[in-house]
Amino acid sequence: MILDLHTHSIKSDDGRAKVENYCKWIRKKELPLDGFVLTEHRQFDATSDYRHLEDEYGLVILKASEVETDYGHVLVFGVNDDLVNSFDFAKVDNPLPMVLEAADRCGAFAAPCHPGRKNVGLFAHYENKGAVDGVHTVEVLNGGSIPGEDELSVEQAGQRGYAGFGGSDSHIVSRIGYCATDFDADIADIDDLVGALRTGNFRAVTYREQES
């Protein structure tokens, strides 16, 4: 089962994609996606209900968050009330160890995204401040990466024994599915996704046209 684990809609300040337009695009372009996860910046969108779109387009649409830490951005899957009350999602400098610990404690799954990004990614912060215990999984393929960034992510994740997933980081409709994650398990809801991420039985995949 293939899910794009990192997408933004108009709920994010820099997102310009309507969720239904993502669905239409996936079907029109016959993208090999079974669904996608909305990871809005610095918030958890608890109110939007996309079940009618799931039914209409036959896609799994899940909700998560992209929060910001002192070691770069982190995707948090399985957000619940306990986690929302654990730290301020709107802050731009949450301590990474705190976010990882809170996610674990609340039954969620936290993983740094675009860790190979120059200056602001996880591995750039490792260079300056040392590694953080508790990181086990990172986004190794990101649709917004420039050449060299994903390569660094794959290399560093491999050296450190981190599992790697993929996401498009799409902010406009036509970028969805640039990168995604191929799971061994079937995933129908956010609990399934958190469970599948914990097993480590998944692979990052890319469908982005290779730039020379």
């Binding site: 420039i146 409709v173 970028r175």
Partner: peptide, 10 residues
């Protein structure tokens, strides 16, 4: 949708 990309693909 609109995009502008640089020579290096950013």
């Amino acid at each position: 949708d609109l995009t502008i990309a640089t020579e290096e693909g950013r």
